[in-house]
Nucleic acid binder design. Structure first.
Length: 441
DNA sequence: CTTTGCTCAAAATCCTCACT
DNA sequence: AGTGAGGATTTTGAGCAAAG
């Protein structure tokens, strides 16, 4: 079987039989007809039908996926909501769809079938990445179908329905080791954060000490603030002196931080408006500043002394933005630099668990359009920086008795249900109540 | 030669939605 | 109300090259 511009040419079943032409019409219905007795005539007829299809669907049906990819990115909107992508979302989509389209950029839109899609979905090394490819392609199909005039037919747009079966990854890859305990109690949500998933007071103190040695004046404060006040990394590392309200303000009487911005992970270096974007979900919030840390450290006093240092740094010009946690040259940190040069070393020094693993994967060579297998040694932090935020949640609940609504507001989670699943539903409640019932004489 | 700014790539997390 | 799927967004990890 061969395909010409979306029309499949089938060889005759018997030597004396007729060639058969099959294709999907613009209405999404399957169509077929005879192709005559010889291959040449069948091909010519297929080409005619394909040309007719292309005319009917407009010249855009013959556009290649590579061309459509560029247009999709240029339009820059979610085909689901119509909202403009954030800069970081666009980068992700370019990566994800680009990976799926590797080696398939020359395919014409009208030739996209489920088989072609499955090959593109499988351009990944792990099941997780196959799912991400699928997500990217599904949105791309929808965009192409909704586009006026359409690049994809209704039938094509429906080729990747929800719950679609996932193909196996087609290239070599290695799944990263898992961090979390996967066993869970009856009634416990899958994403429940266990006590051992969050750093202990001793671990936070150790990381504080290591960071103070490695990163200087703000090193000791950084993990304490993360574990007690709950900002995300991107929110914390853009904080400026004026965001701290030691004695409250008109909005709130108690000591707190204003979290109005976050480091934009997609921002280029010379971004005209700086490297800030609104926090996740475009939600600003106020985070608490307790006097004493759960580790026993005098947290508020630490912040006070850091603020004094910041003012001096600003005055001398080494920290013009009055950042609480500046990079060596006074700007906002790049997360990767912080991770690789500061945090990793501090974790090693503080004895935080790190898991070393061997990754074998196929690397795409765009010039030769082929993969080559490479191996490398990688390190996974069993408790990454983000785990300090889990400690914040546990402290809020276990120490301060915060209810889900309170925790949601202070930590900036989107809804109570998420918080409930992750931090409240321990799975112990029902078991204990049941045991008590059975113990009664 | 070391440090650090930055990009590329991948995975985790968060959160909505549809289904039971 | 509970649950799983999956889209959206952030975090994490590695590598490279320009700057110091």
């Amino acid at each position: 079987m061969e395909v010409l511009g979306g029309v499949a040419v089938f060889a005759p079943a018997k030597p004396s039989g007729y060639f058969r032409l099959r294709w999907t019409g613009l209405d999404g219905r399957r169509a077929d007809t005879s192709g005559g007795r010889d291959l040449g005539a069948a091909r010519a007829k297929a080409a005619d039908i394909a040309a007719g299809l292309a005319r009917a669907a407009g010249p855009q049906a013959t556009a290649t996926l590579g061309e459509l990819f560029t247009r999709y990115l240029d339009e820059g909107r979610s085909p689901y909501t119509g909202r403009r992508w954030k800069r970081s979302t666009r980068i992700q989509i370019e990566d994800n769809l680009g990976r799926a389209l590797r080696g398939h950029a020359h395919v014409a839109a009208m030739d996209v079938t489920r088989e072609v899609l499955d090959r593109m979905r499988a351009e990944a090394g792990t099941p997780h990445m196959v799912r991400i490819n699928t997500t990217a392609l599904r949105a791309f199909l929808l965009w192409g179908y909704r586009h006026s005039p359409s690049f994809f037919t209704i039938a094509q747009a429906e080729l990747l329905p929800p719950r679609v079966v996932m193909p196996a990854p087609a290239v070599k890859g290695t799944q990263a080791p898992t961090r979390r305990t996967r066993a869970r109690r009856v009634g416990q949500a899958d994403e429940y954060v266990h006590e051992e998933d969050a750093p202990s007071a001793a671990q936070v103190r150790a990381l504080s000490a290591a960071l103070e040695r490695l990163a200087g004046p703000w090193g000791a404060l950084a993990p304490e603030l993360a574990a007690n006040c709950g900002p995300r990394w991107g929110e914390q590392f853009q904080l400026r002196a004026p965001d701290v309200h030691l004695d409250g303000c008109e909005e709130a009487q108690q000591p707190h931080f204003h979290i109005d911005w976050a480091v934009d992970p997609g921002a280029p270096a010379n971004c005209p408006n700086g490297r800030r974007a609104r926090p996740k979900g475009d939600k600003t919030r106020i985070a608490p500043l307790p006097t004493e840390s759960f580790t026993g450290t005098r947290l508020k006093a630490m912040v006070v002394s850091r603020l004094e240092a910041v003012r001096a740094e600003q005055h001398s010009g080494v920290n013009p933005d009055a950042l609480l946690f500046p990079a060596p040259r006074g700007g906002i940190w790049w997360h990767s630099a912080f991770e690789a040069y500061v945090l990793r070393c501090a974790m090693e020094e503080a004895g935080w668990p790190l898991r070393v693993w061997e990754e074998e994967r196929d690397v795409w060579d765009a010039r030769n359009e082929s993969y080559t297998t490479r191996t490398r040694t990688r390190t996974l932090a069993v408790m990454p920086w983000h785990s300090l935020r889990h400690r914040f949640a546990r402290v809020a609940i276990d120490l301060y008795g915060a209810d889900p609504g309170v925790l949601m507001a202070l930590g900036g989670w989107e809804n109570e249900l998420t918080v409930l699943h992750r931090y409240y539903r321990t799975g112990r409640e029902h078991t204990q109540r049941g045991l008590a019932l059975f113990a009664r004489q």
